[in-house]
């Protein structure tokens, strides 16, 4: 089989793999299904390996890092999120939040697979190693922030369930508040580190490429704001021992701005506003 055909096949198979994993994690969460508990993590590793193969092969076949289009970037974002989630699951040995991570990933991958194109012309900018590092760091940063936002959302849901004496499925199946707080903090820290790398590399790249960026480049301003919010969360947690609830709200606020930046700004203009 030719490499491009294989890439296309893998691309169409990926949503199916994500669906199977989502279904398994759902069964485990809602029905406490012990059989699903056994196969879901290996299935997720297989999905991750296939996705990685697809991304690498696509890059090799097309000779560029797969960030040229929104669907390519979405695919990489999904893969990054999956890798970070697998790391968290492996570290904390908690599988019950997998369902909440996989539902958005399934839909994102469905979008990425449905709209994946094979561009004939690759912008010159995508051949620049500094730009690749800048964009890849930003995407992996977003991946970590997705996990952080999901952990925060679940933290708040469980927090209010317990506070209001409601002991339903979330109480029974979610891990302890402390674990969710830990998950939020670690993913936020990872996301913040990637964002920092992305921002620094971005600045260096602009300088070396002698590009002039508008001081009102909305994307950059938003990126600085997001970086500041997560920096505040990390400092607040480490130095001022802020509570899990405050950290969760900060994570969600930061993530809401990321979403606005990805959807709103990109729809209104291009990625960056150069003079």
């Amino acid at each position: 089989m030719h490499a491009p055909t294989l890439v296309a096949w893998l691309n169409y198979l990926l949503p199916f793999f994500y669906f199977i994993c989502t279904y398994g994690y759902g069964r485990y969460f809602f029905r406490r299904d012990r059989t699903s508990e056994k196969w879901i993590t290996p299935a997720l590793y297989v999905t991750c390996a296939i996705h990685l193969l697809q991304v690498v092969m696509f890059g090799v076949v097309k000779s560029h890092f797969p960030l040229a289009t929104v669907s390519e970037a979405t695919g990489v974002l999904v893969l990054g999120t999956l890798c970070i989630y697998l790391g968290v699951e492996c570290h904390l040995q908690v599988k019950t939040i997998g369902y909440f991570v996989l539902v958005p990933l399934f839909f994102l991958q469905l979008f990425a697979s449905a709209f994946l194109k094979f561009p004939t012309e690759i912008p010159e900018i995508l051949q620049n190693p500094l730009f690749i590092l800048h964009a890849a760091s930003a995407v992996f940063g977003c991946s970590a922030l997705i996990v952080s936002a999901i952990a925060s959302l679940l933290y708040l849901l469980l927090f209010y369930e317990v506070k209001r004496n409601r002991f339903g499925v979330l109480y029974n199946r979610l891990p302890a508040l402390n674990i969710l707080q830990n998950m939020n903090y670690r993913s936020a820290l990872m996301g913040w580190l990637f964002l920092t790398i992305g921002l620094v590399v971005g600045i260096v790249w602009i300088k070396t490429a002698a590009l002039k960026m508008s001081p009102f480049d909305l994307k950059s301003l938003i990126s600085y704001a997001v970086w500041g919010i997560y920096a505040l969360e990390i400092v607040g947690c480490k130095l001022w021992k802020w509570s899990g609830k405050r950290l969760a709200y900060l994570s969600l606020a930061g993530f809401a701005i990321v979403i606005f930046s990805l959807l709103g700004v990109n729809l209104l203009s291009s990625f960056h506003n150069f003079k």
Partner: peptide, 27 residues
């Protein structure tokens, strides 16, 4: 015991109190 959740969850008030504390603090 290993393949069902028949033995899971606290079923006495004293145990439920400790289980609730674990739901907040984990370990």
């Amino acid at each position: 015991r290993s393949q069902t959740a028949l033995c899971e969850g606290a079923v006495t008030v004293a145990h439920a109190a400790v289980e609730l504390a674990q739901k907040i603090f984990g370990d």
